Amino acid sequence: MTRLGELERAVMDVLWDRDGGTAGVSVREVAEALKERDLAYTTVMTVLDRLAGKGMVERERTGRAWSYRPAASREAHIAQLMLDALDLADAPSGGSGRDAALVRFARSVTGTEAEILRAALTDEAPGRRD
C-alpha cells in the first residue's frame, strides 16, 4: 500500500471524515475544508486525481464534476500500513524479523490497547463457535 504524503493525508482525512458511504465529496468541498492551507482548486483536483490513480479513492461523474470517496476506511488503510511494515521486517531476515517486530509492538501497547488486541484475537480464534 502506498504511504501518503502530507497533503494527500490531509485530503484523505477530509474524505474519511465526510464519507457517509454513499455520496462522494467534490473537489470544491475538499478545497473548502482545507481553506486554511490556501490551496488552489487545481492543486486539490490534482491530488485527488493522483489518489484515484493510486487506488486510494473512487470517483464518480456527477454532472460535469467528479465526486470522490475513499476506496477503503481509515482503519483498513492503517491496518494495511501496519501489515506492510511487518512485511518489511521479514525482508532481510527471512521471517524472524516479523516475529520480533510483533513482540516488540505487543510489549509497547498500553493496557487498554492490549485488551482490545486480546479481544480481537479471541473473536478470530480458530474453532471458536458463536
Rank of each mutant, 00 (worst) to 15 (best):
T2S: 13
R3A: 07
L4C: 05
L7A: 02
E8P: 02
A10Q: 12
A10L: 13
M12P: 03
M12G: 01
M12F: 13
M12E: 04
V14R: 10
R18V: 05
R18L: 14
R18W: 07
G20L: 05
G21F: 04
T22M: 04
G24M: 07
G24Q: 06
V25Y: 00
S26E: 10
S26N: 06
V27S: 06
V27W: 00
A31E: 15
A31P: 03
E32K: 08
A33F: 01
L34S: 10
K35S: 14
K35W: 11
E36R: 12
R37N: 09
D38V: 11
D38M: 08
L39Y: 12
V44C: 09
M45Y: 15
T46H: 11
T46A: 10
D49K: 12
D49L: 06
R50H: 11
A52H: 11
E58F: 11
R61G: 04
R64Y: 13
R64C: 02
Y68C: 04
Y68S: 03
P70I: 02
P70M: 11
S73R: 04
S73F: 07
E75W: 05
A76P: 00
H77E: 08
I78D: 08
I78G: 00
Q80H: 06
M82P: 00
M82F: 15
A85V: 12
A85Q: 09
D87H: 05
D87R: 06
L88A: 14
A89F: 10
D90A: 10
A91L: 15
A91Y: 12
P92C: 08
P92S: 09
G95H: 04
S96F: 10
D99L: 13
A100L: 11
L102W: 02
A106W: 08
R107M: 12
S108I: 00
T110R: 01
T110E: 02
T112F: 03
I116K: 10
I116D: 06
I116F: 10
A119G: 06
A120G: 10
L121S: 07
T122Y: 05
E124S: 15
A125V: 03
A125M: 06
P126A: 03
R128L: 08
D130Q: 05
